[in-house]
């Protein structure tokens, strides 16, 4: 069954990708790329990577789609018809790269080979020792937060950088606030949608902490929780109007909290430094494994703060922008 599903899903992905290449309605393209993400998620689940599927669901299907749609609203939906012409350069370059990659795979270990070097050298340590060293069952969270916690700090900073960039590009002196009466500013008049949203937003908000704190035991963690929380607020903004969202969570507050999130993460590292240990060595906080868990909780919380606020900020910035006539 798994092989069959895998082949089917990969084929679906291929069909989607080709369709995207030759579609010139950007709205359709965005939707199809949303479906692409969904399909990838299914594949990730199939490939034993639920955490990745989780994140891809939040990002690809949620945030990316919403942001792209918001951007298309501002840039126009139609692509010029040139999109249908095949580009010789593009074909040649991608064919060469593809052939090179295929050449490279010829000697690779087979798919799923447990004896492949990738699964032999470092990975077994994580699988065998993390229970003792970190003490939580989700090895991915252990690696993410502790063994490679520094990468994750970088990741948080990347998120923050993106927010900073979008704020610089679409905020501050570059802001073009919506005029009264602009379509996206108004709340949706659809009663059904509004009542559904009223029901859903709080429910989703409660889902976020669950994902956050259950991350040690099941797929999830600070990033996913942040994306979900942010997603709930985005839903709120979509249904009740961006003005109300802006009033509910002012940009100023979001900026501060986003920065605080990064500082929480980095601050944890600095605290361990101050306690005489290496940077991000959670053993400084308390003996193993409880120190590790304290540290993980702290940094996950930092990630959560940053991601939530950045997601909302990004949406706010795109959605509150006046579209060109």
């Amino acid at each position: 069954m798994e092989t069959l599903l895998m082949i089917g899903l990969l084929a679906a992905l291929g069909a989607l990708a080709v369709t995207i290449a030759f579609m010139d309605d950007l709205l359709v393209v965005t939707m199809l790329s949303g479906i692409f993400s969904f399909t990838c998620c299914a594949i990730f689940v199939l490939f034993d990577a639920p955490d990745v599927a989780f994140t891809e669901a939040c990002v690809g299907a949620g945030v990316s789609t919403v942001l792209t749609l918001a951007a298309i609203r501002l840039t126009g939906r139609r692509e010029k018809r040139v999109g249908r012409r095949a580009s010789a350069v593009g074909l040649i370059v991608s064919t060469i790269c593809g052939l090179a990659l295929v050449y490279g795979t010829l000697e690779l270990p087979r798919f799923g080979d447990p004896l492949a070097p990738a699964n032999q050298h470092v990975a077994p340590h994580y699988l065998n020792e993390s229970a003792a060293e970190i003490g939580i069952p989700n090895v991915i969270t252990s690696v993410l937060g502790s063994y490679r916690g520094y990468d994750t700090m970088g990741e948080t900073v990347v998120v923050f950088t993106a927010a900073l960039g979008v704020l610089m590009l679409l905020g501050g002196s570059q802001a073009r606030p919506l005029r009264r009466g602009d379509a996206p500013a108004r709340a949706d008049r659809d009663v059904i949608l509004r009542s559904i949203a009223t029901l859903f937003v709080p429910m989703t908000l409660f889902l976020a902490p669950y994902v956050q704190f259950h991350g040690a035991y099941s797929p999830g963690g600070g990033f996913q929780a942040g994306a979900i929380f942010g997603g709930a607020m985005i839903l709120y903004g979509l249904v009740f109007g961006i003005d109300r969202l802006n009033k509910l969570v002012p940009e100023r507050v979001l900026k501060v909290i986003a920065a605080l999130g990064v500082l929480t993460y980095g601050g944890t590292g600095l605290v361990t430094l101050a306690l005489g240990h290496q940077f991000l060595d959670y053993d400084a906080l308390s003996p193993r494994p409880s120190g590790q868990q304290i540290g993980l909780t702290a940094i996950e919380f930092g990630v959560f703060m940053t991601v939530t606020c950045v997601m909302i900020l990004l949406f706010q910035r795109f959605a509150s922008r006046r579209s060109e006539p």
Binding site: D190, L193, M203
Partner: peptide
Amino acid sequence: IVALFASPASCHALAR
């Protein structure tokens, strides 16, 4: 529950 609410609602909104 989510599906029960979301699917008809979005279907309705879509048709509308």
